[in-house]
Structures are given as C-alpha cells and as structure tokens.
Amino acid sequence: MTSPHRSAARIQIGTTLRRLREEAGVPREKVGEVLHCTMTKISNIENAISGVKQAELEKLLDLYQADEATREDLLALNSEAHRRRPKSKIGGTIPPWLRRILDVEAIAAEALYSSSELLPAVLQTEYYARALMVASGVGGEVLEKHLQLRLERRALLTDREPPLKLWAVIAEPALRSGIGGPEVMRDQVEHVLSMTERENVVVQVMPQGAGAHALSGTTLTLFRLPVGMPSLASVDVPFGDNFIDGVKQVERIAELFDHTRAKALGTEESRELLTRIVKET
C-alpha cells in the first residue's frame, strides 16, 4: 500500500476523531484536560491543520472508547503519516502551500474548477506553463523543477486509476489570452479540446460578453475527496493558495459553481467554440 500523503492522512484522521468525539458526547474542554492542550489545538487536529502525535491519538481513542478496528486503522494511518517522506525525484524545495495542493489533488475523486484568467494546472501544456512561470519571475533550475512537477500533475487525468474527474469552467478571454504567444496558445487550446474527448474531463466555456456570474474574478478549485472525507476548496491568491474547509463555506462554493456552470455554454457548444478559437489563433 502506498504511503498516504501527509495532508490526506491528517484529513482522514481529523475527520474521524471529530466524529468519534461527537458520537461519544465528549466536550472539547474534556479533550483539552486529557491532552493538556488548548481548544485551538483540538480544533487544528480535527480540521487537519496540524497532525496528532501517536501518544495523543492513543489517549483520544481511549477517551472516545473507539472499537478495536477503528483504533488499529487510525494508529496505522497516523504512523504512516509521520514517516519521513522520500525526497521528490525533482529535488529542490516545494512551497508548503503547493505541497498541500498536490497532496489533496492526488487523492481527490473530482475537481471542480472555475477561472476567468487561467487554465487548470492538470490541463496545461509545457510551453503554456513555462510562460506563466517566467512571467511570475521564476527562472533557472527552479523553473525547470517546478515545470516538471506541473507537468506530472497531468497524469492524474490519464494514468491514475481511477482517473481524476475534472469539470472546468473556463472564461473565453483565458483561452484567447495569448500567453506564450499565438503558437503556444493555439497548442494549449488544442490540448484542452483533445482532453474533452475523455469521459473524465468536462470543459465548459464562459463566453465573452456573458456578463457577471457567481464566481466572477475568482480562480477556484473544489476538491471532492473519497467517501468519508470532507470536500475542500482552494482559492488562488497572488502568492499561493488558500484552503477553505468550513462545511457551510464549501457547500456555498458548490452552489456558486453550479450557478456558474449553468450560465456557461454546454459541452458541445464549448467544443465548437474551442475549435473556432484554434482556427482563429
């Protein structure tokens, strides 16, 4: 069994611990007394912001009177999560916020994406991604390492089993942005068009002139995680990504995404527009 990524393990452990605590009717104040910690730490563990030490986990499982199967499962998962991860084969330092994105993306069953400016990383071609990185000031060896990492993410749509399901709503101006020049942009749109032939990839275009919509001006990805794990949203900000994990907030984001894709062109109309953009670029 492949060792779980650290963020994914924290999500699983934190979610289960919260359920066990609520089912046992144990207030957080009591947990604080047992672990000799603050309410903030308990919240951070349950929301996967921070991990839990093995000794602390054992105390919590005792307190919640967890059954033996649950106990063994969580202790094994937590042990794997704390093992030293092998270095990335591309070397170098990966920013923590990017690592969190990659960890969540790697286990996600589905990704719902909306942007008025950019194409999702898993659909980006090499030269489009390179142009974006150069424009942001990345260069040299760091550029090449991050570019390789970016391109490896595309395998989630094609090589993983089951593959990641992607539903992307992309604004027409993003497809005509000229990033990298006409040839780069044409190849990029052609790639998007070819990927829509896959059953696990749905692309809708928000046509130019459609007016404002629920997610105007936002680049957002909503990750649907495996059964038993909460959905998470990632919002692009200038210097990284901001995770949103509040249940009500995530539900609201899902509603906004539904409103947005309802306003976009249908899948066949979108393919027709993508084909036209390729010819016009």
Rank of each mutant, 00 (worst) to 15 (best):
R71I: 08
P162W: 11
W97N: 11
A131C: 06
Q188A: 01
E280V: 01
I107M: 08
L74N: 12
S43K: 09
T260K: 13
S43E: 07
F223Y: 15
I170G: 09
Y128W: 09
M195N: 00
F239E: 14
P163K: 07
E22W: 01
S3R: 14
S7D: 04
A76F: 14
R176H: 01
V205E: 12
Y128L: 02
F223W: 06
D241H: 14
L215T: 00
A168T: 03
A254V: 00
S231C: 05
E141H: 01
E23V: 15
V104C: 08
S7N: 02
Y128Q: 01
P226F: 05
N44S: 03
Q54C: 02
S115D: 05
V203N: 13
T38I: 11
V278T: 09
P238S: 07
L157S: 02
L222W: 10
D159P: 00
Q65R: 15
Q204C: 11
S50C: 09
A69S: 14
V34T: 12
A66T: 12
L175E: 03
V250E: 13
Q148M: 10
S194H: 02
I42N: 10
L256R: 08
H36A: 12
H213Y: 15
S79M: 07
T267L: 08
L132W: 06
M39L: 11
R130S: 00
A214C: 09
E280Q: 08
Y127F: 11
A135V: 06
E280C: 00
L118P: 00
L35V: 10
I101G: 04
L149Q: 07
H82V: 02
E152K: 08
F239C: 11
